[in-house]
Write a protein that binds this DNA or RNA. Structure first.
Lengths: 144, 144
DNA sequence: CCAATATAGATGCAATTGCATCAATATCAA
DNA sequence: TTGATATTGATGCAATTGCATCTATATTGG
């Protein structure tokens, strides 16, 4: 009976989970300390900002960010209520809607980036050279 | 104004978050499909199994797994109630307690590993050579 | 020793997540 | 066309998480 995942694979997974938890908690802590919302809000704002005028359908956002449908649905409730995102009627699918970032949303994303960017620099950049970071990204890309 | 995190660093973080989410959801989905509890249960069982006879104090488990205190406290309630973990009096600190894995706990961990190990093999092993996995683990290790 | 402080773990309550399922369209096959 | 199926997004309810705070015991400085 050969072991299914070899030791290198297991170690890679453990290291991935650990590194993620560590980086994530460091970043989230900094955002919270600055009185800012959590990363998932940032991710939504950034996707919508990139999408521009046309906005995005919830299901597109859902796939882009790998969110659960019900989760995104409720996150959008909150973000719309907070005035960061506009829910617009969707011309070509009456089941659906179009989401667009608001001016306030853009402003918040910008303020968040100031903290988020610094946090990435500290948590990741401070520990890897640019070359290492590039190699890491490439390797991780294969997992997608 | 120099950008704080350079592009390679940002890419590495994005890739890390994405790879983690993807691998995690694949693994959790397989566990759930097999009617098994989630990874955090596995992590606890495995730590306690490694700790052996002496068991571990909650705060040790907390640090080993990077759990929040209140989170672990409640997880232990559930696992003790499920008969997977024994809560024992702690001889040298009357505030504390000692956690030990039960026989049932060991059995469950074993059954979980069958699924979990396969999942790691598919989600990670299937996409990286042993050499790549080793390199990835090394790089991720620097983030700890 | 004793008061001040720190550490271990629990818990009430609010917010979020997960699960199952629903209603409303859209699409497709006969 | 039309009935069957698929897709989009919402929602009731249970489980989990997060936050703040509490109690009990340990430790430490005077």
């Amino acid at each position: 009976m050969t072991r299914k995942p070899d030791d290198e694979t297991v170690s890679a997974w453990i290291a991935l989970a650990r590194a993620h938890r560590l980086a994530m908690s460091g970043i989230e802590a900094r955002l919270k300390a600055a009185g800012l919302p959590s990363l998932s809000w940032y991710d939504v704002l950034w996707e919508l900002e990139k999408a521009g005028e046309d906005g995005l359908r919830p299901f597109e956002l859902e796939r882009a960010l790998l969110f659960e449908q019900y989760n995104l649905s409720r996150l959008m409730d909150r973000m719309v209520k907070s005035g960061l995102v506009d829910r617009c009627v969707c011309p070509d699918d009456r089941r659906g809607q179009t989401l667009r970032i608001s001016t306030e949303g853009r402003a918040l994303r910008h303020r968040m980036w100031a903290v988020y960017g610094d946090a990435i620099a500290e948590v990741i950049g401070g520990r890897l050279s640019a070359g290492e970071a590039q190699a890491l990204a490439a390797m991780l890309g294969k997992l997608g």
